[in-house]
């Protein structure tokens, strides 16, 4: 029993040190991914066929290849071009590019479901393309898709467990090390699972709450 307790306290300490890395990676990757998603979503909704085709290829590649393979590709690929940025930046780039593809799909869908009248009215009122995007279409689209974006954030949290393969000590790797040392897989991995569960559960609850709100905004209340 005391062994289990000491393992548990070991694992607990690791989670306290490892969890900030997970949250940081998620947070730092979320916004570049959103930026890529907005750009990709806009290009995918453009009238130029070549642009839509290119974005389509980008999305297809990332939807059909696993993240674990992609992170290796970035890890071994960047140094070939003389770029040496270390594992954390590698992980952030890989997470951003991969989830940017999924966010492109989310934002393309959001833009597509926006009432055409909004854009037409803005054109009639003399708004430029940039003004329309900034003041009319993007704010409404983003408001409507916040729940989907939070869902994507949950996927980012789960994907951070894979960045240990390029040598980042996040909680899954630290947990594995404790298990190999103590041979108490159930205690350690249960704590680990609960940690991820807690983070994802908070995001999921927030998404559900905001979904109600977003629906009110869209319906014009």
């Amino acid at each position: 029993m005391s062994e289990i307790l000491s393992t548990a306290s070991d694992a607990f300490r690791l989670i306290v040190t490892g969890l900030p890395i997970v949250l940081l990676l998620t947070f730092v990757s979320f916004f570049p991914a959103l930026g890529i998603g907005i750009l990709g979503g806009l290009l995918a909704s453009s009238r130029v066929r070549a642009l839509r085709f290119l974005v389509g290829i980008y999305v297809y590649i990332f939807r059909s290849t696993p993240f674990l393979m992609f992170i290796f590709l970035v890890y071994y690929g960047l140094p070939e071009f003389g770029i040496d940025i270390g594992p954390v930046a590698t992980a952030i780039i890989a997470l951003s590019l991969s989830h940017g593809a999924y966010m492109t799909e989310i934002i393309r869908g959001g833009l597509g479901s926006l009432d055409k009248g909004q854009n037409e009215a803005a054109i009639a009122l003399g708004f430029s393309l940039f003004q329309r995007l900034r003041d009319i279409t993007l704010p409404q689209t983003l408001m409507a898709i916040i729940p989907s974006l939070l869902g994507q954030a949950i996927l980012i949290v789960k994907d951070t467990s894979l960045v240990s393969v390029v040598g980042i000590s996040e909680i899954t790797r630290l947990g594995r090390e404790v298990v190999i040392r103590t041979n108490e897989p159930f205690v350690v991995f249960s704590l680990l699972a609960l940690t991820y569960f807690a983070v994802c559960f908070v995001l999921e609850t927030a998404a559900r709450k905001l979904e109600v709100k977003a629906r009110l905004v869209i319906s014009g209340h």
């Binding site: 789960k158 467990s161 947990g175 108490e184 991820y196 569960f197």
Partner: peptide, 21 residues
């Protein structure tokens, strides 16, 4: 809910290290 809110890697480790235990 547990499966959807935890990484697959943790599930793999759970089974990989848990079954022999």
């Amino acid at each position: 809910s547990l499966v959807r809110n935890t990484p697959l890697l943790v599930q793999v480790y759970f089974i990989y290290f848990g079954l022999p235990a």
